[in-house]
Design a binder for these strands. Structure first.
Length: 297
DNA sequence: CGAATGACCTGTGAGC
DNA sequence: TGCTCACAGGTCATTC
């Protein structure tokens, strides 16, 4: 799936179409994705106005005017296609259900934008690890998906002191600790690898070794905290600044990715810090970890 | 309790 | 070219 920066980029791409829009009609093309859609999903959305589109961790949240939130997760392979009237080559077809829908187009939102123009937002997800649900706004923070989420990796909540608190006594390797959504919400496999590389820390190192006996963050933990913040902030910025290029010709918003230092570069040279080693791939908790065995300790 | 593993799905690319 | 296998950005349920 898109990690947090990609989800944020998708949010920014959808916001111009969805913010303030009215939902005219919803096509729900199958009963479930990863989970069943809630009962009456399409009917409950029809006629609602979208007050705003936000994000928490890797979840997209559309606030509706009846006090519920449309929660959307992209799983591993989810993408959105946003089309406005001018994008449609054959305007006569615009209000019809697409006769050329892709196999994995599972949900289509037919909207009326704030500018009073028709628009269409299509959710496509081949692996169907994504899902959508409806949750009352007041219950959101207690909902199963959100109750245990940790802090956002950008913003003031993430600090070395916070991580020292969460890492103290933790025998799990750093890779696993950083993927734990109850500690930091939104970090995924790519950016964990990248942050550890930047902080020059081995993914196999025990999380507790970054904390002093008195529970204070060691210098390495200060470094890691800053690396996480920077890696995520830069990726969001790169996605945001290239949003125009990154929206596909067909209007689809999916992954944005720029060049990585270690991710998916097994056997290639570690190019920074002039260390001449090659990137290694190992498996930790069932997932690939990419790192430089020489400059990450 | 924490940590590791399997499960959920389809698509893609490498290797034979 | 066609087949098989390994692997893919995420969570959730189960097991040790």
């Amino acid at each position: 799936m898109p990690e947090l920066p990609e989800v944020e980029t998708v949010r920014r791409g959808l916001a111009p179409v969805m913010d303030g829009a009215s939902i005219r009609r919803v096509e729900q093309r199958r009963p479930d994705l990863r989970f069943p859609f809630p009962d009456g999903f399409a009917a409950r959305l029809t006629g609602r106005r979208i007050a705003g589109l936000s994000r928490r961790a890797k979840y997209l949240l559309a606030d509706l005017d009846d006090g519920t939130v449309l929660v959307m997760h992209l799983g591993m392979s989810g993408r959105f296609l946003a089309e406005t009237e001018e994008d449609i080559e054959a305007p006569g077809d615009f209000h019809h259900d697409t006769g050329h829908a892709e196999v994995h187009d599972h949900v289509v939102f037919h909207l009326q934008t704030v500018a009073d123009a028709p628009a269409r937002v299509t959710y496509n997800d081949p692996r169907r690890f994504g899902f959508m649900t409806l949750v009352p706004r007041a219950e959101l923070s207690n909902h199963a998906h959100f109750r245990n989420l940790g802090v956002e990796p950008v913003g003031n909540a993430l600090s070395a002191d916070y991580l020292a608190d969460r890492f103290a006594g933790k025998s799990a390797p750093l890779k696993a600790a950083l993927l734990d959504q109850s500690i930091i919400a939104g970090l995924g496999n790519i950016y964990v690898c990248e942050a550890l590389y930047r902080a020059r820390l081995s993914p196999r190192r025990k999380a507790s070794t970054l904390v002093t006996k008195a529970g204070q963050p060691r210098a390495a933990l200060e470094r890691l905290t800053e690396a996480i913040r920077m890696v995520i902030a830069e990726a969001i910025e790169a996605g945001g600044s290239s949003l125009r290029d990154y929206v596909q010709a067909d209007g689809s918003l999916g992954y944005f990715q720029h060049r990585f230092d270690v991710y998916d570069r097994e056997g290639e040279p570690c190019e920074k810090r002039g260390c001449r080693s090659r990137v290694r791939r190992i498996v930790q908790s069932g997932r690939s970890t990419f790192y430089c065995p020489d400059c990450q300790r």
